[in-house]
Write a protein that binds this DNA or RNA. Structure first.
Length: 203
DNA sequence: TTCACGATTCTA
DNA sequence: AGAATCGTGAAG
């Protein structure tokens, strides 16, 4: 379990460090569903693309709250997006989880924020949930073997927004085929070369 | 009450 | 490239 301290830092610091960490959910049948985070984006109050930009409301309240919680919202009336609240109380900021690589599942099963939420069964009812093992929904650190510092992390601009689109606040694991959209000129690795999570990654 | 707009995904 | 889809916030 990642310590609270981890989240009590600016989103642009937490964003890239979340790459390689695991998203874990205890399902109703008792089984663990988990995957490695391979793509993230950072948002904070000072940037125009952030939900908390100059506007506090019922729907984005969690983003202004304490770090270490999930901020889940509905977009396009259809898809849910999962965020991690970061930094400090009363300052809207968070990291959007854009893609997760799940062992023994299709590469693109959770390739995109809406698909991540769908696969993990997350929706508005999970909004403001603390990240904790007790709640059955948490994050764990990078494994020593898996996606980590020895893998290249690409830093590029965010996706699907109209405002502040030039800020380099998106990060992804270059060697993963589960990344939703790659930066211009970055070719998707072949299955042979690509990194992928393995069962042994979990402790 | 009305209207425009998405932190998206899927299909052509 | 374009449509689908609906909750939310701002305007009238």
């Amino acid at each position: 379990m990642l310590p609270l301290k981890f989240f009590q830092r600016p989103a642009e610091i937490v964003g890239p460090e979340l790459i390689g960490c695991r998203l874990i959910k205890r399902q109703s049948n008792g089984q663990l569903l988990w995957g490695v985070i391979v793509e993230t984006e950072a948002y904070s109050q000072k940037d125009a693309a952030c939900h908390g930009y100059q506007r506090r409301s019922k729907s984005n309240e969690t983003l202004f709250g304490h770090p270490g919680k999930f901020y889940v919202y509905l977009t396009y009336g259809v898809y849910h997006c999962v965020n991690i609240v970061t930094d400090r109380f009363d300052w809207a900021s968070g990291v959007l989880i854009r893609a997760v690589a799940i062992p023994n599942e299709h590469e693109r099963e959770a390739s995109g924020p809406g698909l991540v939420a769908r696969r993990f069964g997350l929706n508005r009812s999970h909004d403001s949930w603390p990240i904790s093992v007790e709640n059955g929904l948490w994050l764990s650190e990078r494994s020593s073997k898996s996606a980590s510092n020895m893998h290249k992390i690409v830093n590029t601009t965010r996706i699907g927004i109209s405002k502040a689109k030039d800020l380099p606040l998106r990060w992804y694991l270059q060697s993963s085929r589960s990344v939703s959209k790659r930066a211009k000129g970055d070719r998707c690795p072949t299955r042979e070369k690509a990194w992928q999570p393995e069962k042994e990654d979990i402790q």
